[in-house]
């Protein structure tokens, strides 16, 4: 009933206007022109505009889909030949990477491990710092301080990754080398890397995911309804108890989203870590020089030919699958948040 009523209500003015136009047509030419200048216009121009606008929106919407589908297709088409040539198990489960040897091996197991371990450690360091910064910004910090800290965090997000890499080379690597020399003093088995190791890469990644984690966690914390906080405080809980027992649990889904986006950023980063990680294929131990999935592609694309080049595309496909899995999980998490 109510639907029908509203239909009538919408239609009614239209009819009135049409009558209006018809009347004015008969009356006066000038009046008719003035009427066309109005927002509503005649029914014909109006429907043309509606159709055109609808078409333009549809085209814009399709561009995104076309891009995703074509990139996916391209990655699969370029990643598959090497899998057929070398074999999926040889690529995924072998740890020997000697692409230019007379008897080449294309095992990326250590590279996959490095990406997983590196990303996990970066999250382990970056997320607590990020979430607690978000708590600080939304609950604890005095207003003047918030005005300094928040723009600083936003600026951090805008710094190009190569700058992080350069700072890593200039500050982190020499520092790590000093630590390495102390820890492995007199060691005959350790291969000294000059500070280009997993820890350097993890630290750079942890800093790089901070802005993502802070911004999203903070908006999640801010969107927690105030009555929850007031009720908690009213029951006699302290401010800190309220933050950890009420506000953070209430903002959980937002914080999880922040973490998943942080993982996406960390696993996809190439430039910064290619400068600080040393780029040798090794098992991801803290003081080993390591190569990530992204840096494996970047560092050898320049001169790679034939099978070697095709395997690099396969590494791209592996990375692509990794990121797809993370994104699908992100969607699940987001939907869960909406249901709650």
């Amino acid at each position: 009933m109510s639907g029908a009523l509203s239909l009538i209500q919408i239609k009614a003015p239209k009819i009135l206007i049409r009558n209006d136009i018809v009347c004015k047509k008969e009356l006066n030419g000038e009046m008719r022109d003035m009427n066309k200048e109005s927002i509503i216009g005649s029914s014909r121009t109006k429907s043309t505009i509606e159709t055109a606008a609808g078409f333009i929106f549809a085209v814009c919407g399709t561009i995104g889909i076309v891009a995703v589908v074509s990139i996916t297709l391209y990655m699969i088409l370029n990643g598959l030949p090497a899998i057929q040539e070398v074999g999926l198990t040889e690529i995924l489960f072998s740890s020997v990477w000697t692409p230019t040897a007379a008897d080449p091996h294309y095992g990326i197991l250590y590279i996959i491990f490095t990406s997983i371990v590196g990303t996990f450690l970066a999250i382990l360091i970056g997320v607590p710092i990020g979430v607690l910064s978000a708590v600080f910004l939304s609950e604890v910090a005095p207003k003047p301080l918030t005005k300094i800290v928040r723009p600083a965090v936003e600026l951090l997000a805008g710094i190009p990754s190569v700058i992080y890499g350069l700072l890593g080379i200039m500050i982190l690597n020499p520092l790590m080398y000093q630590i390495e020399l102390k820890i492995f003093e007199g060691s005959t088995t350790h291969q000294f890397t000059g500070g280009s190791n997993l820890i350097s890469a993890v630290l750079v990644l942890a800093i790089m995911i901070l802005p993502t984690v802070i911004n999203i966690s903070e908006s999640a914390l801010r969107s927690v309804p105030n009555y929850l906080k007031e009720a908690s405080l009213g029951l006699g809980a302290s401010k800190i108890q309220t933050i950890f027992k009420v506000q953070i649990p209430a903002a959980k889904s937002g914080i999880v989203t922040a973490i998943v986006l942080g993982v996406g950023r960390a696993i996809g980063e190439a430039m910064a870590i290619s400068l600080v990680a040393g780029s040798s294929v090794n098992f991801p131990l803290p003081f080993n020089s390591v190569r990530f999935l992204t840096t494996a592609i970047v560092s050898e694309m320049g001169y790679a030919v034939d099978t070697h080049r095709r395997v690099l595309f396969t590494i791209g496909l592996v990375l692509f699958v990794f990121i797809m899995i993370i994104n699908l999980n992100l969607n699940k998490v987001l939907k869960k948040g909406e249901e709650e």
Binding site: T98, P99, T100, S279, S289, G302, Y303
Partner: peptide, 30 residues
């Protein structure tokens, strides 16, 4: 410190010393 696999300089270096793909690099830079 050395170059990445596929680099001409690395190829020449390892070829002349006859240590093709036997090198233990701590850094493979591109």
């Amino acid at each position: 410190v050395g170059r990445e696999a596929g680099s001409g300089t690395r190829g020449a270096f390892e070829e002349i010393l006859e240590i093709e793909d036997a090198c233990a690099y701590a850094n493979e830079l591109d």
